[in-house]
Design a protein around this nucleic acid. Structure first.
Length: 224
DNA sequence: AGAGTGATCATG
DNA sequence: ATGATCACTCTC
């Protein structure tokens, strides 16, 4: 592989990433399984991150809410058709980006939308820097955010906060350097705290709009 | 509850 | 080429 920099093991001092096989499952399992883990961005000149607290599963060809409904395969959604564990980023409403992780395997165009993060002041590691830095950067990038809970409480808010754009479409979440998901250290996530409900913003999806494919941590203030 | 914003896609 | 749409956010 040409051009792979020598420094490409950011896991040496941090938590391991979720593996390819984690993503190569059905999107509901991935959407639920993602809750509580840490999305990390090294896009731009800072490392920013947050714990995933809200997700939505998109079920592909049969799903009237999905970009790939009916087998549609367009330039925008091309990465959804590929293998699991890659970023699918799209642009909507003329100003916003949304970040998904591709689930399943190549040929099955399913994905999970990341809808909200809980930004953390402390990066679990003990010896790291005085990491208000994470919050400082998030507030700087999210100019309109007044409160802590305005930072990453929506799919496009979190993209703005972590600097995610279409440039990241197709990024490899397992091998790439810019964007990845770290396994939570003490992943003692109580299964009972996961709640399901209908997905947001897909009124056009007819009967599919009511399917309980949105998952979030009950009572978390960062949920959108 | 309405405006903003322009890429994207299905038409033709 | 053209027009409708949009997995949203902000402000009123």
């Amino acid at each position: 592989m040409p051009g792979k920099p020598e420094t490409s093991n950011p896991d040496a001092r941090s938590s391991p990433r979720l593996s390819r096989s984690f993503y190569r499952r059905n999107p509901v399992a991935v959407a639920r399984g993602l809750l509580g883990h840490r999305l990390v961005s090294q896009i731009g000149d800072a490392r920013t991150s947050g714990l995933i607290v809200e997700t939505e599963a998109y079920l592909g060809i049969p799903d009237k809410g999905a970009h790939t409904y009916g087998g549609r395969r367009t330039p925008r959604s091309e990465t959804m058709w590929g293998d699991g564990g890659y970023a699918y980023v799209y642009f909507v409403y003329g100003m916003h980006h949304c970040f998904n992780v591709v689930a399943g395997r190549a040929g099955n165009p399913v994905a999970v939308l990341i809808r909200a993060l809980e930004p953390c002041a402390s990066e679990a590691g003990s010896g790291s820097e005085p990491s208000n830095q994470n919050l400082d950067v998030l507030f700087a990038r999210r100019e309109k955010a007044k409160r802590f809970t305005d930072l990453c409480s929506g799919p496009s808010k979190l993209c703005q906060a972590l600097n995610i754009t279409r440039d990241q479409d197709g990024e490899d979440l397992i091998e790439g350097d810019l964007l990845f998901i770290e396994r939570a250290r003490s992943h003692s996530l109580p299964q009972g705290s996961i709640v399901a409900g209908p997905r947001i913003g897909i009124a056009y999806a007819e009967e599919w709009q009511h399917e309980p494919l949105r998952f979030f941590l009950e009572g978390n203030p960062h949920v959108s």
